[in-house]
């Protein structure tokens, strides 16, 4: 073992070399991560750009053919979709049903999320697992299961008013969206210090008062996230709707069904136009969630 300044210099040199090695391997690691992540991000962006490009191309071609650039703004596929009575109905039904589904999801998600986050009880793990079923089940199976469920009493008593009717749209959307809302609310309550609630109780609150005056205000951002996630999930729902609510125009047709129906009749421009409207709605929801909701919620 060597001593003195020379040894110190050697040690420093070794450390510098080691640090450089770490730096090199770190760069390679970061580049690998960047490539893997970048590939997926590129795919998402490319899909959105392709839709927009396709629509722009069709609009320009139509305007050139008609030799009138003013038609670019009034006769493009999106404008045509927005003036189509059937599409306008599906937009209205989508907005209404998604909002109802998100409200119902939140009403169910808040108590269940709170229960799962705060309390230990027999069967908790089972309940937790059951709540994940709609997330992992194939969407068509959810629709089929709902359809079969309404064959049996007591559901059969109201089947005529539900199945292939408007309530079926909301119920099909709710069945899946609620599971996501519950996960979000559980995560929200997990992040709230239970001690705040206990302090509120020692200050004179009942459990309900502590929940209403301390826990719920603290969970407001999570509730916003939960609502918007449920709304966005409902907007994208298709499989259960097709099986349980059908795809009847001007009746149970929502935006996702419109895309399917327009594709079926070969009207690709209209299908892409409706898709772009859905993308716009989804991005709006995403922006709202990012701006006002929780950013660190895990679902």
């Amino acid at each position: 073992m060597s001593d003195g300044p020379e040894a110190d210099r050697d040690n420093k040199s070794d450390h510098t070399s080691a640090a450089r090695n770490v730096s090199v391997s770190n760069t390679a690691f970061m580049v690998s991560l960047g490539i893997i992540g970048g590939t997926y991000v590129s795919l998402i962006v490319a899909m959105l750009v392709a839709d927009t490009w396709y629509m722009a191309e069709k609009s320009v071609n139509a305007a050139e053919a008609a030799n009138s650039w003013t038609k670019l703004f009034v006769e493009n596929p999106i404008a045509a979709a927005l003036t189509d009575r059937k599409i306008r109905y599906s937009i209205w039904l989508s907005l209404t049903s998604c909002t109802l589904s998100a409200v119902f999801s939140l009403l169910v998600a808040v108590p269940i999320g709170y229960l799962l986050s705060r309390h230990q009880f027999r069967g908790k793990r089972l309940l937790d697992a059951v709540l994940d079923i709609p997330i992992v089940l194939p969407p068509l199976v959810v629709g089929l299961s709902l359809l079969i469920l309404f064959q049996y009493r007591p559901f059969a008593w109201i089947a005529r008013d539900v199945v292939y009717q408007l309530p079926a749209v909301v119920l099909a959307q709710f069945s899946v969206a609620c599971a996501f809302a519950v996960r979000t609310m559980k995560s929200t309550f997990d992040h709230i210090n239970p001690r705040s609630e206990q302090v509120a109780i020692t200050l004179g609150c009942s459990r309900a008062q502590a929940f209403g005056s301390v826990v719920l205000p603290e969970a407001s951002r999570g509730m916003m996230t939960s609502f918007t996630l449920a709304w966005a999930r409902s907007l994208g729902e298709f499989g259960p709707l097709l099986i349980f609510a059908g795809a009847t125009r001007m009746k149970t047709e929502v935006l996702s069904t419109s895309v399917f129906l327009e594709l079926n009749v070969g009207n690709i421009e209209a299908a892409v136009a409706v898709s772009l409207i859905m993308i716009l709605a989804a991005v709006t929801v995403l922006v709202i969630t990012r701006r006002w909701g929780l950013r660190d919620v895990t679902v």
Partner: peptide, 14 residues
Amino acid sequence: VGYVPQDKALFSKM
């Protein structure tokens, strides 16, 4: 009984 917990547990929205 008044209580001051170790982590204070203040109400963030108030």
